[in-house]
Amino acid sequence: MNRDDVLLEVTDLRKVFSVPSGWGKRNREVTAVDGISFRVRRGETWGLIGESGSGKTTTGRMILGLETPTSGSIRFNGEELTGVSRERLRQLRQKIQVVFQDSGSAFNPRLPVGAQVGAPLRRFGLCTGAEAKDKAVDLMEKVGLESSHYDRYIHEFSGGQRQRLGIARALTTDPEFLVLDEPTAALDVSVQAQVLNLLKDLQDERGLTMLLITHHLALVEHMCDSAGVLHHGSFAEQGPVDVLLRTPESAITSALLEAVLEPQAAS
């Protein structure tokens, strides 16, 4: 693999949470992520697969700088993310964005959604207020919403629309890398497909690199080039998706695969 192709390189990443266990007792330590390494090439979609509690969301949060790793390294575009200053981390957020699982709670209930979609532009001083509004409206239209939705509040939207708003907000600063944390887990199957196709179209158009965090292998097959299966904080296996899904080597991958098998009529 050519090193220049690698956009994100995670090496031996660990996260240990210290859980208070009451007065006078020593804090219990819980290892959420236990020394994982993987590389995401520019333009590809990398699937981070795992059951709940496997550490996949924590990994995503560390890449986003929302959680500080206990040890290990995260390199983005060749730059080390762990231990950078808060302001540098803030600047890097222009390039690394996130779509949350439930955009219904990821938007402020008391602010109009349009202003929240455009807010990153103002925060990074990328344009004036009026331009930010135009850009936000453009993005909202791009993801299939209407300009009249600008002044509405998040509770006025359906699940699919909320997720579209989340995608629009993630794209405002023209990021290179998108972390998708279970982006369709809260949606109906038909709406899931629409949102996934929207993400794929946007990826082709903008050359986005994406990290898809999910427990659903059908999603991975549809979206990803490579993937890794997390189990209790470390990789059970990783590799190209077609190999991973056709010849699973670990018990956990097989178990996850069986969970998505479609029922078939006997013939």
């Binding site: 929302l66 938007f107 402020n108 807010a119």
Partner: peptide, 23 residues
């Protein structure tokens, strides 16, 4: 989660306090 989302979107502590949390 919206506080986290604001932080991920580049908001500083002051803005989170005054614009996101205050209302």
């Amino acid at each position: 989660e919206y506080v986290e989302a604001a932080r991920a979107g580049g908001a500083r502590t002051g803005e989170i306090l005054l614009k996101e949390l205050l209302p």
